[in-house]
Computed example of a mutant assay.
Amino acid sequence: MDFGFLFHHFAQITITGLALGSIYALVALGYTMVYGVLQLINFAHSEVFMYGTFAMAWTVTYFHGTSSSDEGLGSALGLLALCLIAAMVTSALVALLVERLAYRPLIRRGSPKLVILISAIGASFSLAELMGLRDKIAGWFHLDDKLANYVAQARNTYSSPITIDPHKVFEFFGYAVTDIDLLVIFSALLMMFLLDLFVRRTRLGRGIRAVAQDPEAAALMGVNSTRVIRTTFLIGGIMAGVAATLYMIRIGTTRNDAGFLIGIKAFTAAVMGGIGNLRGALVGGLVLGVMQNWGGAVFGSSWQDVFAFALLVLLLLVRPTGILGESLGKARA
């Protein structure tokens, strides 16, 4: 154990943990929204995030080309805005596809929740494998040469041609806080604020809370549950698209199974904060990101994931409902 390393690099480890936790939080919002309404875990949500990362990288490739370059956040802002839109639209469409094919038919038939969960797991593996087979799919249509920049080496790591160089904004206890750190953290806070405002203040948001609290009573009051569920998946997909863009700005690489570990950690963040609680997803993501970095600093980077999941177990032993523990259906208006 090396507590000295944590002490001497405390600011750096904490800020980078908050940035990483912000990405977890945005993905966790998708899990917590679906659980709040359906009392089900959308295990395909990790692939919704993964498709957003590819949409971001492919948008850069389309407009910038395949030549590698380093750019500052300011100079690449216009292109990144296009990437954000592409990632949000792609992730939202994939989320709606999951809802339409893996959830809606089973919900209409009154299938047991275990069956729906298995369907979601199947959708998760199918989406990951489809991305891993994109070269073969392009070959079926004789487009593999034309789309070589997008489908070649489909199971290898795919990198964005542009690397966003971080620039120092200010110094915090010896650590140079960068524009990318601030972008990731404040983007998560802004999206959380807008989503919380939407759920609490809009008519559709009240419908979401009504279905989450009592689906039968909501239906009797004229709330269209199918529309509410579809909207819930759509919102989760949009949040995953934002997370995917921020992830690619910070990390810069993705692959067909990139969503697996991120998805598990985001789900952990949702449970840690209080599954079904929007604010809990944010708190859980930030806590998980910071504690994971602290654990890695003390015990070594190879112990990061062990420390993070052990923390979840200990927290749930003390507080089974999570840090905040208030479900979407019980949220105050």
Rank of each mutant, 00 (worst) to 15 (best):
D145A: 13
Y103E: 02
S124N: 10
L117F: 07
H142D: 10
A154R: 00
Q153S: 15
A152I: 01
K146M: 08
T157I: 14
S91F: 11
A138H: 02
N156L: 12
T157K: 01
V151T: 07
S160D: 15
R109A: 09
W140K: 00
K113L: 05
K113H: 08
Y158W: 05
A154W: 00
A128C: 03
A154V: 00
R104H: 11
L147I: 02
L97N: 14
I121A: 12
T157Y: 13
V98E: 05
K136D: 01
V89S: 11
A148S: 11
F141R: 00
G132A: 08
V98N: 11
P112E: 08
L147R: 00
S124M: 11
V115E: 07
G132V: 06
S124I: 02
P112A: 03
V89M: 14
S159N: 09
Y158H: 12
S119M: 07
L114A: 13
W140C: 00
L147G: 10
L130C: 06
M131I: 14
K113P: 02
M88N: 09
K136R: 12
S160A: 15
W140Y: 13
L133Q: 11
S124P: 04
I118E: 05
A138Q: 03
E99D: 06
S126G: 06
I116D: 08
W140L: 12
F141L: 06
A120Y: 04
D145F: 13
G110V: 11
D135Y: 12
R108G: 07
S119G: 06
L133G: 01
L117Q: 04
H142L: 12
L117N: 05
A154T: 01
S126K: 01
S111F: 04
G132Y: 00
M131E: 06
R155L: 05
I107P: 02
V98Q: 10
P112M: 02
S124D: 13
V151H: 00
S91H: 09
D145H: 10
V89C: 12
R104I: 04
L130E: 03
R134F: 04
Y150S: 02
R100C: 04
L106Y: 14
R108Y: 08
N149C: 00
M88E: 10
W140D: 01
A128P: 07
W140A: 05
L96T: 08
R155Y: 03
L106R: 03
R134W: 03
A138F: 00
R104M: 05
A154P: 10
P112S: 09
A152H: 02
T90K: 06
T157S: 12
S159P: 14
A154G: 03
F141D: 01
P105A: 14
A120E: 05
A123G: 08
A123N: 04
I118D: 06
S124H: 06
V89F: 06
N156G: 14
L96Q: 13
G122R: 03
A120L: 05
L101N: 07
D135M: 02
R155A: 09
